[in-house]
């Protein structure tokens, strides 16, 4: 069993299933309306390139914190939408929100590159309150996120190359 990246972050009896990158990629692929939510940490270690690769597969990107600046700097803003994480969670939970493209909500949320503890709270909010219709959340981050439905494992910063390889496998399977 994996431990949460912040060890005390055990909120209840249900914790995320650890999943292989292939399964995480397929979950994104099989979703009807997936959304990739990225945070400020994609500006480290060139992770933004992986986010752009996912965006190029047609997956819309919610750019939280100041990650938008990274996309602008790289000239990729095609399907990237500026938002705050709190605001986004509140919108996802709302039946009135029609998504960034104004055609409807999302059925799968994948998180990458957010601050661990705020992303964890984001996931736990959706787990408990984005239930009608249900929204599934997965983590493709370097952290195990127990509040997601499926999650990657903790991969330490000294193994960033491994983490990037893991992301490549996720991307291959989308």
């Amino acid at each position: 069993m994996e431990i949460p990246f912040d060890i005390g972050n055990i909120s209840g009896p249900e914790n995320a299933r650890v999943a292989q990158p292939e399964a995480l990629g397929r979950a994104i692929k099989n979703a009807k309306r997936p959304l990739l939510v990225v945070g400020s940490e994609i500006l480290d270690d060139d992770l933004i390139e992986k986010a752009i690769a996912i965006g190029k597969k047609g997956i819309p990107i919610a750019a939280t914190a100041h990650s938008m600046k990274g996309f602008v700097d790289r000239g990729y803003t095609e399907n990237v939408h500026l938002t705050g994480l709190h605001e986004l969670a509140n919108n996802i939970e709302s039946r009135d929100w029609m998504g960034f493209d104004k055609t409807g909500g999302y059925d799968l949320i994948a998180v990458l590159g957010g601050i661990y503890y705020s992303t964890s709270q984001f996931l736990i909010a959706l787990k408990n309150f984005a239930t009608d219709p249900i929204v599934r959340c997965i983590s493709i981050d370097r952290y195990y996120h127990p509040a997601a439905r499926m999650s990657s494992v903790n991969i330490s910063r000294k193994h960033t190359d491994e983490f990037k390889k893991m992301l490549d496998k996720v991307i291959e399977n989308i």
């Binding site: 909120s11 209840g12 009896p13 249900e14 709190h86 969670a89 509140n90 939970e93 709270q121 984001f122 736990i124 909010a125 787990k127 408990n128 309150f129 239930t131």
Partner: peptide, 25 residues
């Protein structure tokens, strides 16, 4: 300004009826 909740703990242990698991409604 609707209250938005992100539970830090999904259980309650305030009384001896508990612990109660409050997840999933």
């Amino acid at each position: 300004y609707k209250p938005f909740y992100a539970p830090y703990c999904e259980m309650c242990c305030f009384c001896t009826f508990g612990k109660c698991d409050l997840t999933g409604g």
